[in-house]
């Protein structure tokens, strides 16, 4: 019981690091992929957040990015192992095309996450831990405080630059 909760928390941290790294590597905070992402960024900035972080959050909302890739890859690994993860990557790719996303952050994230999650299942984690963990991770970014999350992301983005 307690072990599972700890696993979930660990998975949350791992997936947090994974998707934030991939997203920042693919320059998500730079510009809004679609006009809607920029609009969300503006609103977050108006609420006291940072623009770069807001842009990244907007991009996460508007298109399946690495976080979605991680989630779906975890789901894929849960239901069908490595092939499931790769299938999830394919679906994220299609999703990217549907949502007019020029980048490959989601697909890359999904492929990476497939192997990461699979590796962790070998050391005692369950794939379900990663699903819940990923949801917690996205909660910390999108769901608790937009102001703080966007400032944090903006700081990370400056590091990347």
């Amino acid at each position: 019981m307690l072990g599972e909760i700890l696993h979930i928390l660990a998975a949350a941290i791992i997936s947090w690091i994974l998707f934030v790294t991939v997203d920042i590597f693919f320059k998500l905070p730079e510009t809004g992929g679609v006009s809607g992402a920029s609009a969300i960024a503006r609103d977050i900035e108006a609420g006291g957040g940072a623009l770069a972080g807001g842009t990244m959050m907007g991009n996460i909302v508007c298109s399946p990015d690495a976080s979605a890739g991680t989630l779906l890859a975890a789901c894929g690994v849960y239901v069908a192992g490595i092939p499931g993860g790769l299938a999830a990557a394919l679906m994220v790719f299609i999703g990217n095309r549907i949502c007019h996303d020029p980048g490959y952050a989601g697909t890359t994230g999904a492929v990476l996450a497939t192997f990461v999650v699979y590796a962790f299942t070998l050391v005692g984690f369950a794939a379900t831990d990663f699903i819940a963990g990923m949801v917690i991770a996205i909660l910390t970014i999108q769901g608790l405080s937009h102001t703080h999350a966007s400032r944090l992301l903006a700081r990370l983005w400056r590091v990347r630059q």
């Binding site: 679609v34 992402a37 609009a39 508007c62 979605a68 779906l72 499931g84 679906m91 999703g95």
Partner: peptide, 25 residues
């Protein structure tokens, strides 16, 4: 159910995208 989850996720993302873009004008 992976397909269902992906479809749901992509669909709702598309919805958010459309709402946000329209909201942006």
């Amino acid at each position: 159910s992976l397909v269902a989850a992906a479809a749901y996720f992509v669909g709702s993302t598309l919805e958010s995208n459309a709402i946000a873009s329209t909201y942006a004008g």
